[in-house]
């Protein structure tokens, strides 16, 4: 098939006629992802996390006490009572290690394997969707989901933070105080960095999804790889491999909250995510374009 995909250019007449048609599949793909009940449930769970954290902090500090009892819990938790905007950072820090990548793993793992399991894959292929084009559409929809999932956490946290806690000028990690407007921009940048952090597992999940005809197996494998990587990342003895684990630099998003922004780890993270996307994206392409579709 890979040979076929490269040689078979679409008929010239069809190529010029409808420029919009190229986007049809991508719109359809994104629409299909977000109309699934499962996707909405995942987003619902993600939206609930900031609500729980916000209420817990509010209850704990209702009598004037402090949170965290000496800096325990997710990053930024102790600042939430002073400034609701910190709920955005603390919620992202709480969901990034597991909830967010798990949701991405479910969507990415199911992307092709789920279509194979339900049999719709063969009808897409005889439409004919084009295997490379379908893979690109799946990657796009998964990345859009990464962004959407991150934004759901961020927006929910901002809303809860604004409701339960005061808002105002924000003191960065480096001690500098910036206006609330700039704080919002920094929050947006943090959300962007978190969404990009998920590109690696999105590509990994897509590759796993090309290996099996069972959506459940692909989801479980992807989430299993996530947990394994997180565990390996904890052991000092395995230091040598840790810089190559996709979650290794995830919490680098906090460096956006320094003045000036501390770029080293952020860029390391983006490079690592790009590497994973390239390696596993290529592997997924090589596998999917030569695969016998028997489901």
């Amino acid at each position: 098939m890979s040979r076929a995909e490269r040689q078979a250019a679409p008929a010239p007449a069809a190529r010029e006629a409808y420029p919009l048609r190229r986007l049809s599949l991508f719109r359809s793909e994104i629409g299909t992802v977000f109309r699934r009940w499962r996707t909405l449930a995942l987003l619902g769970v993600l939206a609930a996390v900031p609500v729980l954290v916000g209420i817990a902090v509010k209850v704990e500090t209702g009598d004037g006490g402090t949170v965290g009892h000496g800096g325990e819990g997710p990053a930024f938790l102790s600042q939430v009572t002073n400034n609701g905007l910190f709920l955005v950072f603390t919620s992202l820090a709480a969901t990034l290690p597991f909830f967010l990548p798990m949701a991405v793993g479910v969507v990415a793992g199911d992307s092709l394997a789920g279509e194979a399991a339900s049999g719709t894959l063969r009808y897409l292929l005889v439409a004919p969707v084009g295997r490379t084009r379908l893979l690109l559409a799946k990657l796009t929809s998964t990345l859009v989901f990464c962004l959407a999932a991150t934004m759901v956490v961020a927006v929910s946290a901002l809303a809860v933070g604004a409701l339960l806690f005061p808002l105002g000028d924000i003191t960065l990690l480096s001690g500098t105080t910036v206006s609330f407007g700039e704080g919002l921009l920094r929050a947006l940048a943090v959300a962007g960095a978190v969404a990009l952090s998920l590109a690696g597992i999105a590509a990994l999940g897509l590759f796993v999804s090309t290996l099996t005809n069972s959506g459940i197996a692909a989801m479980a494998t992807t989430v299993g790889l996530l947990i394994t990587a997180q565990i390996v990342d904890q052991f000092p003895q395995l230091e040598a491999v840790q810089p190559y684990l996709f979650p290794h630099y995830w919490l680098s998003f906090a460096d956006v909250l320094r003045q000036p922004v501390y770029w080293d780890q952020l860029l390391d993270n983006f490079r690592l995510q790009a590497l994973y996307a390239a390696v596993f994206g290529s592997a997924a392409w090589a596998r999917f374009t030569t695969k016998d579709v028997t489901a």
């Binding site: 679409p10 008929a11 069809a14 006629a17 409808y18 919009l20 048609r21 190229r22 049809s24 599949l25 719109r27 359809s28 299909t32 009808y123 897409l124 439409a127 004919p128 969707v129 084009g130 084009r133 379908l134």
Partner: peptide
């Protein structure tokens, strides 16, 4: 049907 039609790159979306 809209989804399967959108999968065909030679299908004109205006007449879908």
């Amino acid at each position: 049907l809209v989804r399967f039609d959108a999968a065909d790159p030679t299908a004109d979306p205006r007449t879908r």
